[in-house]
Design a protein around this nucleic acid. Structure first.
Lengths: 259, 259
DNA sequence: CGGCGGATTGAAGGGAATCAATGCTTGTGG
DNA sequence: CCACAAGCATTGATTCCCTTCAATCCGCCG
């Protein structure tokens, strides 16, 4: 088991730009890694819509999510950020952060002012890299839309658990189908377009059937094949081409996934 | 009526780059407009996942949509492209188009090979413009996710009708709350995460209540305020900062919206 | 020990899906 | 010029997934 239980990377990069993305990704990450690592406690905002000086972040460990609120107080979580993900790239060209990014757990991250990152785009390789990151986020978003629009609760949860799993696995943060996902059931609900109550019931079913357990921030996938069956029905693998090639490992020792 | 019935533009551009986006947008559009206009009949693919040579398109008139299919044959429409929209920008950095773009009606468009557009990113202003376009699409996608995840059928349809209306209005294609939207009810359903049948019933309700009519590709908004009430509940205006400033009008006479 | 956020669970109701027919247009061919 | 097929729109009846409302329980902390 193991080997082929992780989806092959899919949206590969255009051949003509793989070299550019290699070096661009390396330099972009480098710029962030040269800043001191900062920390945010769980539930504190990392990027806030009203920030004077918008910024871009690179997550080192812990999880965060991008969310926005409805007038009636409900919330939608558009994206879950895992270690290695960038956040707030929109700030480079748009005024006023589109949404806020909140730490789900204690989070270690690097941050640069939007203006600084904008200046980095003078480097063509970095500009291409940022276009790539945008395209990936875009695909991932469309995938979530399809998931919410067409799949039932069990399948949506399966997609989430597998997405995070595959992301962490590819980046080398985990080697077995177990990981920390510091989200409350309410946050999962807000991410998947469900209610807290129904998420709870669905998780119970997955647990009782021996497929997966999600308890207090710990995910244990017991039967990854059956879990993938639930998630099957989705158009494409879609967890995008994973990371910028081996940039992280050049500078840092294995990054801890948990908070 | 009229004036304030259209939402103000919202995600404004970062002040530092408005100039760049002006000229970048102009040059980018210019590059497309110099190619001969091509046409696609309704329901034909404009960009297909299996294209040898991936390309980027700029819609001149008519509508198209980006979609992908589920293994069981169901479909998800991730984005509706209106005149003035770009499509397939992901192709510049990713290999293999992420999804296919299909003409909803007869469509007039310009197209350039991905490699050509990639070369254009050497122009820093154009690179920034493309980042902006990506960011806008991204926000729009998140907005759709929130819509599908948290709003009911009537609200989702209201959001769609208003989004298209505002887009066309801002670009100067229409001046009254009436426009052509050449989509079948099934396509609307696939876009909003509903079923054909339920879309039909909901449209009937909106019609009976004198709020809006959507009949055979023609949209007539009868009471835009009440329609906005339905759609209210959404986090942010979100139809992004509209278009690249006045680039279209420099070269082209008023573009027809319909097919 | 209360207070609190999060997790659980039961009961009831509703919005949307599903199943199944029936019109309505339009384009095609006889 | 009409019959006919095909796609789309419409509508009724029924089912069910998910939401809503309401309690209870648990672990944690000042």
């Amino acid at each position: 088991m193991g080997g082929d239980s992780v989806r092959r990377e899919w949206p590969r990069y255009a051949a003509a730009v793989t070299e550019n993305l290699m070096s661009g990704g390396r330099r972009l990450r480098q710029a962030f890694l040269q800043t001191p690592m900062r920390f945010a406690v769980a539930r504190s905002p990392i990027i806030h819509p009203t920030d004077r000086e918008p910024s871009v972040v690179l997550l080192r460990n812990g999880f965060a999510f991008r969310s926005c609120y409805f007038p009636d107080g409900r919330r939608a979580i558009a994206r879950v950020l895992a270690p290695g993900d960038f956040g707030g790239l929109d700030n480079i060209v748009l005024a006023g952060p589109a949404a806020e990014i909140t730490a789900a757990s204690r989070v270690g991250y690097h941050t640069l002012p939007a203006a600084t990152v904008r200046a980095l785009t003078r480097d063509h390789d970095i500009a291409l890299t940022m276009l790539m990151l945008g395209a990936e986020a875009h695909l991932q978003g469309d995938r979530l839309t399809a998931t919410i629009g067409r799949l039932d609760a069990a399948a949506r949860i399966a997609v989430l658990l597998l997405d995070i799993h595959d992301r962490l696995f590819r980046r080398g943060f985990i080697s077995r189908p177990t990981y920390n996902l510091p989200m409350t059931q309410e946050q999962v609900a807000d991410h998947l377009g469900l209610t807290l109550v129904h998420v709870n019931r669905t998780l119970r079913r997955l647990r009782e059937e021996g497929i997966a357990v999600f308890d207090r921030g710990v995910v244990i996938i017991r039967d990854i094949d059956r879990l993938r069956e639930f998630a099957s029905g989705l158009p494409q693998p879609a967890e995008l081409a994973a990371e910028l090639p081996a940039a992280t490992s050049t500078t840092v020792s294995p990054i801890r996934t948990d908070a």
